[in-house]
């Protein structure tokens, strides 16, 4: 077996996602470059990836979050950016995690709304809301839906 020598030891990588009508992924990446000070920034279709010491990465993320405080999403990544082991170009297809992002980013607008609303709440109101259950509308039976569509 071949020995493995890791790169970027001691660094962390974080994904920054943006889901905003005002700020594009490119804006995010540009803003990150501006204060990068040598830290590795990689622009992506959803925002950027930042690789460096935990302190540096946090410094840049804090700055980015100010651009649109309710619409910036962040998570850790195990791999450094552009790693051939995870790269779509090398694997022929997206790594499975990409589809998970797709799924959650579709829900981001609800989270953004929730963040804005809860920021305006008093402690009491927050507590009451946290315990609330929103009744879900019953799913329409697929056969009923089909017959409705046929009637149309």
């Amino acid at each position: 077996m071949k020995p493995y020598v890791p790169q970027y030891v001691g660094t962390i990588t974080k994904y920054v996602f943006v889901d905003s009508p005002d700020i594009t992924p490119q804006d995010i990446a540009t803003a990150a470059y501006e204060i990068a000070q040598g830290i590795m920034i990689k622009e992506t279709c959803f925002g950027c990836q930042i690789t460096g010491s935990p302190e540096d990465v946090e410094r840049i993320i804090n700055h980015l979050q100010k651009l649109d405080p309710y619409r910036i999403y962040v998570k850790d990544r195990g791999f450094p950016p552009g790693d051939a082991r995870r790269c779509r170009a090398d694997l022929g297809g997206a790594r499975p995690g990409y589809l998970g992002h797709e799924y959650e980013m579709d829900l981001a607008r609800y989270i953004t709304y929730g963040l804005q609303e809860t920021d305006r709440m008093t402690n009491e109101k927050l507590k009451i809301t946290a315990d609330q259950k929103v009744p879900r509308p019953e799913m329409l039976d697929i056969e009923i839906l089909e017959s409705l569509m046929k009637e149309e």
């Binding site: 829900l107 989270i111 809301t129 259950k133 879900r136």
Partner: peptide, 14 residues
């Protein structure tokens, strides 16, 4: 997971 804005609020609040 929330499925609406209203659920988004309770989700984040919780």
């Amino acid at each position: 997971y929330p499925t609406s804005k209203e659920e988004g609020v309770t989700f984040v609040a919780a």
